[in-house]
Design a protein around this nucleic acid. Structure first.
Lengths: 253, 253
DNA sequence: CGCCTTCTTGAAGGATCTCAAGAAGGGTGG
DNA sequence: CCACCCTTCTTGAGATCCTTCAAGAAGGCG
């Protein structure tokens, strides 16, 4: 029996793809952490800065981004509650992606030292962390396809489909409704388009009665049609890997 | 003292970012493997196929790609000799990226079971593998920026700059020359452009006396200017991480 | 030598961008 | 609770980058 923990969503995520013993799970739940509130639009991890902790998103939406020398931003990843936004910094001395709160967000800072200790003690936990990072990489690869090989309409549709599935709002009968506190400007930075064109395309999708976005809520009126427009196949998200397909690295010592 | 091994380039790569003991290094060099020749344009890892080995590129160039349902390809990564193209499949049961030989290529197939055994035995080796994957992820994130936030001229320039640095041809005084067996069609698939536009843009770069591409060789005539056009900063490639910045996960048992 | 891939060139069309400005919305302080 | 400000959304018109379609030239390989 386990008391409720703010690390539970993260453990749930690991458990959906990895096989961990009770002891290993407890070691993760016992990780030290420190909660912090971040205001909307605030960069809280910058490139080049040494960091000593990873950030688990507890509430809100966080964006990973890079920018070119003109200052134009490119968002490369969305992180939702349960995601460890910069787990990779456990094995790298400087972050490779900057992080920005897209909405008001609560994050949990977890010291690298503690994560490394657990990873060293339990090879299967290290593998679970590694695996979790590779899921993010697979999502990133799809992001490249989205930007490189789809037009604006499909790009936006794909972004929304991905968000719906990751937020567990889809698939579902009838309207797929979920909170999505991302501005059109941020969507532009995510899709490699301009805010103006995002706006026009969203309005076109609404006129087609596929999607309505109002306030910070998205309604997908016809999931199948939108998925087809988006050319969306959720496989890459690796939601719920079947137990018999899960790989466990056994301890040797 | 160590005999020459076809795994040496891979070990060199790990050693440039990780700290490994003699014993750990030997364990890597002792990994079983099986060489294989792949013809140009041949897909040798497909999505959805279970694989039991990872592929180390020994010779030639390999592309990682996805495609949309129209069949349009998007190349998401180039792999050059010394790169383990699908190391991530060690912790995932199905590959998340397909692999295609862009030129004639020699690859070394290394059984997952053996890699997992080494990773389980030596936490620092597991961390080195994980770290190597995270470098690929950082490159992928830059790829998103390249496609999302740069025009055709800068995209191509960036691609060439990255190739030059990874192939250790740059930076250098005078012409930067390196072999690059990638067709314009493949460059189009990598940059999210059409082959026609790739062609015109390359010709424009040549007219500016920045770059000449002929046969399978690239000449960069003015490295600094091209890097500026590309908005290229090699930091993300993490070539030669300084020893004092390297992180080692200590064994606990 | 012949075939198939790759490169090159032209012309026209379209998707997306840029610039500009006004409307709507949300938060904050008086 | 209202007024204000700043962010976000919306709309228009013109410009441009890139695509599409088409076809011929060049190059590499058996």
């Amino acid at each position: 029996m386990r008391t409720h923990s703010d690390l539970q969503p993260f453990l749930d995520r690991l458990n959906s793809r990895s096989i961990l013993t009770q002891q290993e799970q407890q070691a993760i739940l016992d990780l030290p952490r420190h909660a912090e509130q971040v205001r909307s639009n605030r960069d809280f991890v910058r490139l080049g800065e040494r960091v000593q902790h990873s950030c688990l998103v507890v509430d809100g939406i966080v964006g990973g981004f890079s920018q070119n020398s003109n200052g134009a931003r490119q968002i490369t990843a969305f992180f939702i509650p349960g995601d460890m936004a910069d787990l990779q910094s456990v094995v790298q001395s400087t972050p490779t992606t900057a992080l920005q709160a897209l909405s008001v967000a609560t994050i949990l800072k977890i010291p690298h030292a503690a994560i490394r200790a657990v990873a060293a003690r339990y090879p299967a936990v290290a593998a679970a962390f590694w695996r979790d990072c590779m899921v993010d990489t697979a999502v990133l690869a799809q992001w490249v396809v989205n930007i490189g090989r789809r037009d604006a309409r499909a790009r936006i549709a794909h972004l929304l489909c991905e968000a719906a599935v990751r937020l567990k709002a889809a698939p579902a009968k009838g309207d797929v409704v979920f909170p999505f506190a991302v501005t059109q400007l941020q969507m532009a930075d995510a899709t490699g388009l301009t805010p103006v064109h995002i706006n026009r395309t969203i309005m076109a999708l609404r006129k087609e009665e596929l999607v309505t976005i109002r306030g910070h809520t998205v309604w997908i009126h016809d999931w199948d049609s939108l998925a087809e427009v988006a050319d969306f196949d959720p496989e890459y998200l690796q939601i719920d890997v079947r137990p018999e397909q899960r790989i466990r690295i056994a301890e040797a010592c």
